[in-house]
Write a protein that binds this DNA or RNA. Sequence first.
DNA 1: ACAATATATTCCGTATGCGTAATATATGCA
DNA 2: TGCATATATTACGCATACGGAATATATTGT
Lengths: 149, 149
Amino acid sequence: MTDIVPLDHPYYLLSRTTLIMTSAFRKGLTSANITHVKPAYLGVLIALWQEDGLKVIELGRRAGLEPSSMTGLLDRMERDGLAFRSADPNDRRSQLIYLTDEGRNVKKPVLDVVDEVMGEIFRDVSPDDLCRALKVLRQIIDNANGRTN
Amino acid sequence: MTDIVPLDHPYYLLSRTTLIMTSAFRKGLTSANITHVKPAYLGVLIALWQEDGLKVIELGRRAGLEPSSMTGLLDRMERDGLAFRSADPNDRRSQLIYLTDEGRNVKKPVLDVVDEVMGEIFRDVSPDDLCRALKVLRQIIDNANGRTN
DNA sequence: ACAATATATTCCGTATGCGTAATATATGCA
DNA sequence: TGCATATATTACGCATACGGAATATATTGT
């Protein structure tokens, strides 16, 4: 019988690494005095920095979140002064999400923090190993999507 | 400027893969009619299947969770009839966590589900690639622990 | 024996994401 | 035109994990 060790199970390794990254982002952002940007905002911010004024659904698609997850996230981002909802003049069902000035201004410092944190986290990992590992993750995600979508 | 794509960022790839595994476990367990075992219980169950009657702290150490995270988790596991707390006769500060009969009985079916789900998730990944990827995750975790602990 | 310190748990608030159901609005087809 | 269907968003409850503060109990050094 192979002895099962929770701490060496793929599920643990993955979820722990995710939590480590989340925590590192939180700390990095806090250290840089960017306390109103939470780790979960990153995907949405990056998407909006590329194209402002997206509808919730499209934003969720680009950031990889379900519509129902977007609601709370956008609530927090509005609360924290980074984005706001605005009625879509072309479709009364939908809202368009825009960055505030602050949301636009934090781009540079936030991306600096992201770079620094990533460097720190992957400090011991060779670029090649990292690249291969990420490829595996993409494979897993594609596999899951193929089965679901 | 490299165009930043949220869906290809390491942070997204990791957290998405983690969510995929959690969801797959939930579905697999549900399909097997094991609805009272939640994905988060796995680490704790595995630890207790190896050694029953551990204190919260030690259990958290083996499952990779903070003591404060254990409280709610154990509350849910008690609610779901899998484990229970019992005063430690040797140290009135601590409680010992034991499996119920049910907690012991689900071992085989749960591990079967885990095997099946893992096989499905890693279906497209070569064992060697998987092994390397997991090694990278261990490196990241070790790196983080070295910096924190 | 006692004060100072350490350990074990819990409590509480926060963040994050999901699924299901409800609501509002659009669209398409008879 | 008018109903059936599709789409966009939100509401709600649940699961999961953290960190910091509070509480209870041990242990230790003097």
